[in-house]
Simulated assay, not measured.
Amino acid sequence: MSVNRAKAGLLAAAVVPLLMASATVAVTAPSASAQPSGADACAHPTWSNKSPGKGTPKGDSAKIRTGPSEDCSVVKEVSGSTVLQYHCWVENDHGHKWTHVRIDGKDTNGWVYNDRLDDGGSKHPDNKC
């Protein structure tokens, strides 16, 4: 066997595993268009106090969340008798309307899905966040 053939064989033995490893990385790399999920999908839109309205949770309770989505963390779960002061509303990416609220007499605030509010929440066009 010539010296050049031996060198070529060693070079191939070193390069082939590197090429295979890079091909594996390229195949398993995450897509740039992957959508966030869970808490990473929680948007925090700006809000202001535009609504003079107030209401209570529909049924036994409602969850006040950090953003207008079920993907957002729960700030507090309130009973059906809790008075909530309305601030404004938004429509999320799924077409669901959420109202930004504050518990009456407290500093606790966040977002409640309008279907969980006794009167459907803040929804007047002038009250949009």
Rank of each mutant, 00 (worst) to 15 (best):
T56V: 14
K50W: 02
Y113I: 00
V112S: 01
V3D: 07
A41N: 03
E70M: 05
H44R: 09
V75H: 10
A8I: 13
A41I: 07
K50S: 07
P57H: 07
K7R: 15
S48H: 07
K7V: 15
G67F: 00
S48Q: 11
L11C: 13
T99L: 10
A29W: 15
P45E: 11
V112N: 04
H100V: 00
M1S: 09
S37D: 02
D107V: 06
A21Y: 10
A12G: 12
N92R: 02
T24I: 12
H124G: 02
S2C: 02
S69A: 13
K106F: 05
W47R: 02
S79F: 12
R102G: 01
A29F: 09
E91G: 01
G59M: 00
N114K: 08
A62N: 07
S61W: 04
V25W: 07
C72L: 03
K58P: 08
N109T: 06
A14H: 11
K106T: 14
C72F: 04
A34I: 06
L19H: 13
E70T: 11
L11I: 15
D40K: 14
T108H: 02
D104W: 03
L117E: 03
M20G: 11
N127P: 05
A6T: 15
H94K: 15
V16C: 10
A34C: 10
T99M: 06
L117F: 04
V74L: 07
K54T: 05
N92P: 03
E70Y: 09
N114R: 04
V78T: 06
D118T: 03
K50L: 15
N127H: 15
G110A: 04
D104N: 14
N4H: 12
W89D: 01
M1C: 02
D60C: 00
H94P: 01
A23S: 13
D104R: 13
V3H: 07
L19C: 14
G80Q: 10
G55H: 12
A13K: 00
S81G: 12
A29H: 12
Q85S: 14
C42G: 06
